[in-house]
Design a protein around this nucleic acid. Structure first.
Length: 584
RNA sequence: GACCCCGUAGCUCAGUUGGAUAGAGCACCAGCCUUCUAAGCUGGGGGCCGCAGGUUCGAAUCCUGCCGGGGUCGCCA
């Protein structure tokens, strides 16, 4: 239960009554009032600004209106007290029983606590990674992979119907270069002495093994024949091999992709023609000449008439070309077609996760989505900034030429997928992120992964120990849900319940804003509060979770402890991180 | 030149989508530390929320203009 949503309903109900009584005009129903936690704990548990927003329309003084609202809220279930504060806030203080009910709710829900129907089963397509199939993934791809994967998990938890897709750019000049690179390696594998690799080819040695495999499969068949004969088979072979590398990298990270969509296939199916047809039908295509690009002196630029999309009608800065001079599609044309494809498959909400260097493409693709969907589809693009690899405060030297390039697979192998995933979410996607091997593996409080995992391990540790005294049965969540929660009276205990009770709301808002990093901060705060309570037990034995002489109080606290374990695990589930049983 | 992102404590960053007295960690200062297995605990100082206007009951948050840092900028993806 999102308690703020619940009380928003109560407030709306009260406003409805006031309208019925003629105290408020009908129009107030459309005003969006906020019902949220006050920043200051001293202001209560739930605050609403309804009176402030409606004062003007109602012709009443804010505080007078607040009083009318407050009066009608006092008798609502779960409300212990209602106060008016400041310029006209209405602050609710919730009853202890209300909090106890939340604890029970958590224990019965387990790790599913926080699951929401807010999304209403609406389909969302999260497209992410989409790394070109020209080599293994690097760390930056890894960030995008985690952000996309977790965004998908988050949306699913919030009640959306989520699909995850990888767009394979297997049609452009880059995969042709890849095919030539493979062929070069293939010749080398068959014993030709070739010297230095020509410019424009991919030098990475990850093509050596596929080249040998090709030699083994096809023998000398592609030697001494014109490129027009070997290019296509080499391309297909190379792309398949690279996708295998990428799938392995994703698997090591624990990232699941539902579907892989091929650009080549989309073109073959007539997807681009269809997109152009739709745009043409709406009068959004014309032939024109663009201004030369600003900034860099355009060397070989020459004005030429091109097929252009009127993206400026949808908020873009200039109209965008759809065809290259050789007649093939631009990247933008296929991307526009791809988004039409997504939309027609039923995804009105689309989220793309891109590297920040693609930021210049956001407007044009959003323009295409608007144009192609008749304004019905929505595209949000999450741009991921760089990951700076460090080790003990020193930057890790990254050079492909010097052979010191560190791929995603190596990083994940060294840090572990759980650590990597969590750290990738400790910053919002549009901020640069530092990944320091020494720091992320450190077992100290300033390492958030450790700190959060430690909280879970501590929960498990306490419950294991308690099981020796009480038996496993008494500690089953359903049993703990029947404990006497009135024993929980310490402010730290109540604070913990409050924090946990805000989890469903956090899920909903993080999902709505597409901001998975909020979960990391929530988990850190929850862990801090839990460790805090634990530490007070060091000084004051009465606050310890397990007190052999007080079985009732102990069971109530174990219920609290178990609930913390569930909520932490629920959050880690969203991250795709395994909650640990102990810290080794 | 245009567009996008960023600017919050000495440092690294949060800030609940416009709320009330702006938060956390590190660092710093002062105490404590034979423990539910545990890698410390408690308290304290520290702010022109880049600058200037605007919108309104109310702005770190929204709008405009500057300043500073990063990124991108036809036929590459």
């Amino acid at each position: 239960m999102n308690l703020f949503r619940h009380f928003a309903g109560e407030v709306a109900d009260v406003l409805g009554l006031l309208v019925a009584e003629g105290r408020l005009p009908e129009a107030v129903r459309s005003v969006r009032v906020a019902v949220e936690p006050p920043r200051e704990a001293g202001h209560g548990d739930v605050a609403t600004n309804a009176a402030l927003l409606l004062a003007k329309d109602s012709g009443l003084a804010p505080r007078a209106l607040a009083e009318m609202i407050a009066e009608r809220l006092r008798s609502r279930p779960g409300v212990a007290a209602v106060e008016i504060a400041g310029p006209g806030f209405v602050n609710l203080r919730l009853a202890d029983d209300f909090w106890r009910a939340r604890l029970k709710e958590i224990l019965l829900a387990g790790r599913a606590y926080g699951d929401s129907f807010a999304g209403g089963g609406e389909p969302v397509m999260v497209e992410f990674v989409s790394a070109n199939p020209t080599g293994p993934m690097h760390v930056g791809h890894g960030r995008g992979a985690v952000v996309g994967d977790v965004l998908a998990r988050l949306l699913a938890k919030a009640g959306y119907k989520v699909a995850r897709e990888y767009w394979i750019n297997d049609a452009g000049a880059q995969v042709e270069a890849l095919a030539r690179s493979l062929h070069w390696r293939y010749r080398a594998a068959l014993g030709e002495r070739l010297g230095a690799m020509p410019e424009g080819l991919y030098p990475g040695d990850y093509l050596i093994a596929p080249a040998r495999a090709l030699a083994e499969r096809d023998g000398r068949r592609w030697l001494g024949v014109p490129e027009s004969e070997w290019l296509e088979p080499c391309r297909a072979f190379a792309v398949a091999a690279m996708m295998e590398l990428i799938r392995a990298d994703l698997a090591a990270l624990g990232v699941v992709i539902d579907t892989f969509r091929s650009e080549r296939e989309l073109i073959a199916q007539g997807g681009v023609d269809e997109a152009l047809r739709v745009l043409g039908e709406r009068g959004l295509i014309y032939t024109g000449v663009l201004e030369p690009p600003k900034g860099k002196p355009p060397e070989d630029w020459e004005p030429r008439p091109q097929t252009l999309f009127r993206s400026t009608q949808f908020g873009d800065d200039v109209d965008r070309p759809l065809r290259k001079s050789d007649g093939s599609w631009t990247y933008f044309a296929t991307d526009a077609a791809y988004h039409l494809d997504k939309y027609r498959r039923g995804f009105g909400i689309m989220i793309d996760v891109w590297g920040a260097d693609h930021g210049g493409y956001v407007k044009r693709v959003q323009a295409a989505v608007k144009a192609l969907s008749g304004g019905q589809g929505a595209l949000d693009v999450k741009l991921c900034q760089m990951v700076n690899l460090m080790d003990g405060g020193e930057p890790v030297k990254m050079s492909k030429r010097a052979g010191t390039f560190v791929g995603l697979a190596e990083v994940v192998e060294r840090a572990g997928p759980d650590v990597f995933r969590f750290i990738m979410l400790t910053r919002k996607n549009d901020a640069p992120l530092e990944f320091d091997f020494a720091r992320v593996l450190e077992q100290t409080k300033d390492n958030p992964v450790f700190y959060v995992q430690y909280a879970h391990a501590r929960v498990r540790s306490v419950l294991r120990l308690a099981a020796e005294t009480f038996g496993a049965e008494a500690l089953a969540p359903e049993s703990l849900a029947r404990a006497d929660f009135s024993r929980l009276t310490d402010s730290g205990e109540i604070a913990l319940i409050r924090r946990m009770a805000s989890w469903p709301r956090l899920i909903e808002s993080a999902a709505e804003t597409h901001e998975p990093h909020r979960v990391a901060y929530f988990l850190y705060d929850l862990a801090a509060e839990f460790h805090n309570l634990w530490n007070r037990g060091k000084d004051d034995a009465r606050l310890r979770f397990i007190r052999p002489a007080a079985a009732e109080a102990t069971l109530a606290r174990l219920a609290l402890v178990q609930a913390v374990g569930f909520v932490v695990a629920s959050g880690l589930d969203v991250f795709g991180v395994t909650p640990v049983e102990e810290m080794r």
